[in-house]
Write a protein that binds this DNA or RNA. Sequence first.
RNA 1: GUGGGUGUAGCUCAACUGGUUAGAGCACCGGUUUGUGGCACCGGAGGUUGUGGGUUCAAGUCCCAUCACUCACCCCA
Length: 417
Amino acid sequence: MKTKSIQSIKGTQDILPSEVHFWQEMERKIFEEMALFGFSEIRTPAFENTDLFSRSVGEQTDIVSKEMYTFEDRSGGSLTLKPEATASVVRAFIQHNLDKINTLTRLFYIDALFRRERPQKGRYRQFHQFGAELFGSEHPEADVEIVSLASSIFKSIGINEITLKINTIGSKSARDNYKIELKRFLKPHFNKLSEASRERFEKNPLRILDTKNSQEQEILSNAPQIFEYLSEYDKAHFSDVEMHLKDLNINFEFDPYLVRGLDYYNRTIFEFISNDIGSQNAICGGGRYDSLVSQLGGNDTPSIGFAAGMERILLAISKKERAKSIDCYIVCMGNKAQDWVLKCANKLRSTRFSVCFDLLKRSLKSQMKEANRLNAKHAIIIGDSEIKDNKFQVKNLDTGKQQEVAFEHLTKYFKNL
RNA sequence: GUGGGUGUAGCUCAACUGGUUAGAGCACCGGUUUGUGGCACCGGAGGUUGUGGGUUCAAGUCCCAUCACUCACCCCA
């Protein structure tokens, strides 16, 4: 008779009542901190035209080429569940002419995203990110403001061990020149490279820079650095960023090997890394994307933003169980009392006291047990004699002391506690 | 997409080299206390050992397949 039960999709998770308050707490702090920095929330749809992502994130990236949930609409168009949020925010920014209304726009989001990867610790097929995008300024102070915002949020959430790494990858042309030089340098060492890095050699040579293989890291220690290929302007921009971060006492490591996977990044890029959340250790990634807005059809709008993985943040924080409790549990004896229970409960609720009662007609004893399990502060006992005398028993479950209170004095009694 | 690990009660785990009725703690329900929780004691319920096949006199245990979970690679938050 037992039918096979349906399971959640691989890589998706239910957030149960026992852990949902960690999410609520994190969200509350994000809202709070975003407001302090003057960022406004934007909400975009769960799916978009597939083109949006191939044109922004990049056709050859893994995200676009093999990880998207793409499906055909009935009208024949290709739609995709958002694999990342920046593209959607930029689309909305352009579509609603925000680039024309304001010269500077500060937006943030909390969103669910979808990528079809093999799940592992800190990586899921539906996952959640919050992030911020600052549109309109090309100045280093904008970079610093974004990094500073991310940093404040992590501090507020209480992430234990976190390292900020920053780098600059300059303009596209600087990067292209550098790629050629890097390949020229690596060519003699090709046989010593791992299989993965050999594949990257043609496809995405910059990725070889952030290898975890120690032998490769050693080879790379003599490699040319991208910084040498940057324009004086980009170098000055970056040193301003570094200077301001130091002024603000935001600790960071300059990491010349840091690269980012999405095509739209240029100049300043950064990552926040945690040490004790497993192999997927990037909690937050971000950077400049000065040409993305114009590339997607908007006005030329230099911009910078970050995205932070919420599941990974939850892995990085120490979690204290929070004891839940209600103000009052009403214990009912006999049918006549049922009516009074309902009345009593809503009366107390209307004055903002939380109330539960039994819905299974259980024994007095099990109702008292339930009150205890729910961590109720008080139990109100209503039976035939209480109704007859209009004297409800109100028991303080911490002290065990019990008092008689008339129905019309109940709310007053609780307010005066 | 590739590789490793693990599936026994609601949860955490036992069950020597294959051996008879698969156990314990926690949680749950009931009783000791006909209308008073926590603590204690006593009792109860709960399992097709993920699923399917195979080897064997005998399988939770060995073999194969399959599914699920998990960690790692690739890549990313």
